[in-house]
Design a protein around this nucleic acid. Structure first.
Lengths: 257, 257
DNA sequence: GTAGAAGTTGACGTAACGTCAAGGTCAAGC
DNA sequence: GCTTGACCTTGACGTTACGTCAACTTCTAC
């Protein structure tokens, strides 16, 4: 015969308050089979005991760490190792934090630009281009490995990443077109600064492989030779593609030779 | 008569691909009144023009920054200033990042403890205590201002924060009980290290106001005098409350006098 | 006996689409 | 003219963890 020192059974509101949650959450856990009442009265009332309270507190601890109810159920039911689960969760948290950091940086940049009066949202439309349409040509010119490296990089991006890449491309094209229309020398400082960004952008698209002088200059020539590229750049003004080719050639000779 | 240089109209799939999204998203934006097709065929087909594409690209830009569709609609329809909206969003992003940082820290601590073999999830239950039940007493002993400061702090916490506070309290109580049962001197190094945590914890609960020597020692005496407190600490073993009182008194004399 | 507190089971709402399902429409080849 | 496949449409459910009614029953205290 044991003596009950403390309360041995609580109603749903009582246990909820004791643990710092709500009765709705308790019913939800019941429905999800995460935490069943220790006893259900003939009137349908749920009652919880000490053991329930301990389990509830564990649930809430893991919830406060950010784990989902499925993961919590696996851990508490011994189907998953808690260390493994927490490590996986930690990776997820870090990835989320990195994503937030990128968004914070983007928003900050956008705000800075707005303060300076720069119009941040383009008035012109641009279209995404499907890199797979160049597959055979890329393989022929730079080899299968090059295509696959670039393809892997592209597919590793999420949707937002792909769109950001598209916007960067558009931004570079617009800058080139402006420089061209301002009568800048393609080998001059203004144009070459754009080409610097352009080169970094291509490097990223190549999966962090830096194009050689011939490759970069050859790519520039393609902008003029291949009508699909030419159209894409000349839509900002006829002659832009040729201007870009010249700038890229100059950049290759000056920096990549 | 104008000459259409580029395509002047796209089908839903075409514009989706050009902008880097999906037809489902386009239909969603249509339903949400965020982006209506420029034309709808008699067969119900949606068609989009240049203007639509520009608007779509703006939508996706803001989406990639993390804004919700409601906020985007307000910005694009001129109902809200974009700088104001972005600044508000930036604040939100930073708050989210801080929350993630706290979770990452907690998970890391938990993992470290697990690696060391410490059981991280208590076997015993503890109950949250409702600070408002002490309202009159607190006001009588330490003044109305003290109560309100502490109350403001408590209500500023989110649910997870409140639970974390409860867990800290429990952890301190358990540590005290262990020290007491190990025969430690309440004024000794082991107990005083716990009291140090205890003091910081109380300070936090008081809204970052550091208790004076009398206040801290007086609080310790209350642990013994008030049965609600006594019970709360002696449930870990009779005599724990008195041990804590002695430790707090020693701490007050050594560090707060 | 009756009010008020507390309990119950639905069921909808949340954010932004993904993912079928069932069924028209259109262009191209035979 | 017919078939096939690609593309289009409108529902409608699923996702995450509950919050928030609504309608109704039960317990408790006066």
């Amino acid at each position: 015969m044991t003596v009950a020192r403390a309360k041995s059974e609580w109603s749903i509101h009582q246990i909820a308050k004791a643990a710092g949650t709500t009765s709705r959450a308790l019913r939800h856990y019941d429905e999800r089979e995460l935490l069943k009442p220790s006893r259900v009265g003939s009137n349908g009332y749920r009652y919880y005991d000490q053991e329930s309270l301990v389990r509830l507190q564990r649930i809430l601890l893991l919830r406060d760490l950010g784990l989902g109810l499925d993961a919590i159920a696996e851990v508490l039911d011994g189907e998953a190792d808690s260390r493994t689960a927490l490590r996986a969760h930690l990776d997820w948290l870090k990835a989320e934090q990195a994503r937030l950091a990128r968004q914070i940086a983007s928003v900050s940049r956008t705000l800075d630009a707005l303060e300076k009066g720069e119009p941040i949202m383009a008035n012109e439309a641009f279209d995404g281009f499907d890199h797979t349409q160049y597959k055979d040509e890329v393989i022929e010119r730079w080899g299968k490995e090059s295509y696959e490296r670039s393809d892997r990089w592209w597919r590793s991006l999420d949707d937002a990443g792909k769109r950001e890449f598209m916007r960067t491309q558009e931004s570079i094209a617009v800058d080139y077109a402006r420089a061209y229309q301002a009568g800048e020398d393609p080998a001059g400082e203004v144009a070459q600064a754009i080409t610097q960004r352009h080169y970094e952008w291509i490097t990223t698209a190549w999966g962090d492989k830096r194009p050689s002088a011939e490759q970069f200059a050859g790519l520039g020539q393609m902008y003029v030779d291949d009508p699909r590229f030419t159209q894409n750049y000349d839509k900002h003004g006829d002659g832009t593609a040729a201007f870009i080719r010249d700038a890229m050639k100059a950049y290759a000779e000056a920096n990549l030779a």
